[in-house]
Amino acid sequence: MKEIIANKSMNLKGVVGLFAANRTDEGEDVMVFDSEEDRAACKPRHTFCMLRQQAEKESDDPYLSQADFIAPSGYKDHLGMFAVSCFGCDALVEKYESEQDDYNKIMSQALADRFVEAFAEYLHRVIRTDMWGYAKDESLDNEDLLKIKYVGIRPAPGYPSQPDHTEKSTMWSAIQAKELAGIELSESLSMMPAASVSALVFAHPQSQYFAVGQIGKDQVESYASRKKMDLPICERWLSPILNYERD
């Protein structure tokens, strides 16, 4: 770490977006707007498509979707999002590989991951207490932060609560992650650099992390239609959570 600090071998970059937002009338997706005027005219800049729990439950718990945590039209709600990355690690890895220094190679990768996770945690707190400011009076120590005692959540496309990685493309377009921070998406929608974190930020006091779990063909067909995506392509991206065999 001393060498990284002394040589400034790694640096952190990120971008944040805060958008006026409402869930769609059907209650399944989230629209984001550039302005209150666009919200009033219902002219969304982007729509984030969400998936809903569908597997039968033994309890009376609701079947959750991330869209549930955004207010319907007629109310002023917002959706935050960010992407952060640690740059410079790849060059260090190449250097240590050429020197056959496996220890420092592994340590560089581990430190890059820790740096970007810490940056994401810090940025989420700044969003809660300052940028968005929905939790201005928050006063939590590190233990409370680790126990996720803050208000709101920060899941990302690919998380169990929205396991579709293609929604990253919508986020990248909304916050211009590539243009403003140099954070790119590969063809498989992996983030580049590898030491990267992205997330949607929900402020609803009852928002929670959950797993969508297995979903049926009826929901997949509806989801593909809302995304304007061919069904076979949609099924391929969602294949790990399908409760049926693809044709």
Rank of each mutant, 00 (worst) to 15 (best):
M1V: 14
K2T: 10
K13G: 04
V16N: 02
E26D: 15
E26H: 10
H46K: 11
F48S: 02
M50D: 02
L51A: 00
K57F: 05
F69C: 00
S73G: 10
Y75W: 09
G80S: 08
G80M: 08
F82S: 03
V84F: 10
V84W: 01
C89P: 05
V93G: 04
D101W: 07
Y103G: 02
A120M: 08
E121N: 14
E121T: 13
Y122L: 12
W132Y: 03
G133L: 05
A135P: 01
E138T: 00
S139L: 11
L145Y: 14
K147F: 00
K149W: 04
V151C: 15
I153Y: 06
A156C: 13
G158I: 08
Y159C: 11
H165K: 10
E167M: 11
W172F: 13
A174C: 11
I175W: 06
I175D: 04
Q176A: 12
L180Y: 09
G182I: 06
E184K: 12
S186L: 07
S188R: 11
M192T: 09
A194W: 10
A194Y: 12
S196W: 09
S196T: 15
P205N: 05
Y209K: 05
V212K: 13
G216T: 08
K228I: 01
L231E: 05
L238P: 06
L238W: 07
S239W: 03
